[in-house]
Design a protein around this nucleic acid. Structure first.
Length: 467
DNA sequence: GCATGATCATGC
DNA sequence: GCATGATCATGC
């Protein structure tokens, strides 16, 4: 037994008060000597050390909350700092493992998820590269309970995950399936950690419930009392989510009123007068349809890490453009595993597509769609990512240089994959990132910024045309 | 006409 | 200054 308890285990106020003393301290500040006298060897994670040496209980993996008497679960999570000094979550917050064989028997209100994670005590620390975890500074500490609105959405998410398990599709679960509560992969190498599922003989990846990174950012803003961003809600009263309606249905029904109308007509029907030359014209129109004021961000989409994409289709239904993602840094991508890659992370998100189509010189709203990529397509996209990494690591990037100076590369072309390709995405040829090793043909040590693109034909066939 | 490489323009 | 959405230009 560790006796370093400065709190009353039967009082949540006392526990929180004791926890808040951690602010602006590091693990070494708080319990350095004790850690050394107990032979701390650098193993174990931040949370386990805090539990053992500060709160004085042995880390466990039981289904009950850590502070059983008051039903509070302790969670620690890393922060990063933006250039403007605001805190953001470095990652999603991983909760308890989904026991496929048991959860299908549960109902949300009495579920193992809610029992263990309904009331959290959160300790956020500043994660810094190349610094010993004993020296990370703890910055934000507070309790967290979900608001009524959030809990309705989380319940829908939980039920969606359960439904998939009941249908024997645990192996097809994906983070992009849900809004705030995700089913994220969990295990040192996710490839190796497969589990049985109750209604299918196929093994399914081990997954845990998790709060989406965007949701954690809202918790952080809440705790830090940071209210710089202006948000507007789609769901103004939680009662709207009563009964069978999901947030998806509600959003889609708002758009359906305007299907087959031109952007201009929609604008007038909404009583707006937007600047059509503005780069954000379509984003503004989307927000207005959802009932938001100009300049507001969509709170629910932000919390759910939803990628909103407006796509313009030609008359024949082909998107005018491929869809781009952020550029990758050559030096970073070669040091990254697929499971930790930005590309995988973004492909696992939920997307909201708004399709406009050209018709007689006008753009009309054709349809909107929530979409996330299937597990099998994510694996196909991995092939493109693997090849890209291989090309950069080997230094065989440039294939030939035309007399005009135009350079042909070995990067995966559109014709090589149904799903994705790699192309430049830069201000101009001088807009470059450093290469980890010089290009074999030319010897250049930096190259024009590139990014992954979703093929226009994939967007048409798999997103626009399907069901 | 399409695929691929190159660049522009706006807004934060 | 840069990210992002959008578009242009060239060669097959």
């Amino acid at each position: 037994m560790y006796k370093k308890k400065g709190y009353d285990i039967s009082s949540s106020e006392s526990i929180t008060r004791y926890a808040k003393k951690l602010k602006d301290k590091s693990l070494r500040d708080i319990c350095g000597e004790e850690i050394e006298s107990h032979g701390y060897s650098g193993k174990g994670n931040f949370g386990q050390i805090l539990e053992k040496f500060y709160f004085g209980y042995e880390p466990n993996s039981v289904a009950e909350p850590d502070f059983l008497e008051v039903g509070i679960e302790l969670k620690t999570s890393p922060l990063k700092v933006l250039k403007n000094g605001e805190y953001r979550s470095k990652e999603r917050l991983v909760l308890n493992i989904i026991n496929y064989l048991e959860v299908h028997k549960e109902v949300f209100e009495t579920s193992s998820f809610l029992k263990k994670n309904g009331h959290l005590l959160l300790v956020f620390y500043l994660h810094e590269k190349d610094i010993n975890l004993l020296d990370y500074l703890i910055k934000l500490v507070d309790e967290w309970k979900y608001t009524k609105e959030d809990l309705k959405i989380i319940k829908h998410d939980w039920e969606f995950i359960n439904q998939k398990i009941k249908e024997g599709k645990a192996h097809e679960l994906s983070e992009g399936d849900t809004f705030y509560l995700g089913a994220c992969t969990k295990g040192s190498t996710a490839e190796k950690s497969y589990r049985k599922q109750p209604f299918n003989t196929k093994l399914a990846k081990q997954r845990a419930y998790s709060l989406k990174q965007g949701y954690v950012n809202h918790i952080i803003a809440n705790i830090a009392k940071d209210e710089t961003a202006v948000y507007g809600k789609i769901i103004k009263q939680p009662e709207i989510l009563e009964s069978y309606r999901s947030i998806e249905d509600i959003v889609v029904s708002k758009f359906q009123l305007y299907y087959d109308k031109t952007a201009n007509e929609i604008e007038h029907l909404l009583g707006l007068n937007l600047n059509q030359n503005s780069k954000s014209y379509f984003a503004n129109l989307t927000n207005a349809i959802l009932g938001l004021k100009l300049g507001q961000k969509i709170e629910e989409f932000d919390k759910a890490d939803i990628q909103v994409k407006t796509v313009r289709l030609r008359e024949d239904g082909m998107p005018k453009e491929h869809i781009s993602f952020p550029t990758f840094k050559y030096e970073e991508i070669v040091e990254t595993d697929w499971d930790d890659s930005d590309f995988k992370n973004i492909l696992e998100s939920k997307f909201f597509f708004v399709f406009y189509q050209l018709k007689g010189g006008n753009l009309i709203l054709r349809k909107v769609k929530f979409w996330n990529m299937s597990q099998s397509d994510i694996l196909e996209a991995k092939v493109v990512w693997d090849k890209t990494v291989e090309i950069i690591s080997s230094g065989n990037i440039i294939k030939e240089i035309h007399s005009t100076g135009r350079r042909m590369t070995y990067f995966p072309k559109q014709s090589e994959s149904r799903i994705s390709h790699v192309r430049p995405h830069a201000r101009n040829a001088a807009d470059t990132y450093n290469l980890p090793i010089p290009d074999k043909l030319t010897g250049v040590t930096a190259y024009t910024k590139h990014c992954f693109w979703l093929n226009a034909s994939y967007v048409r066939d798999e997103i626009f045309l399907k069901y």
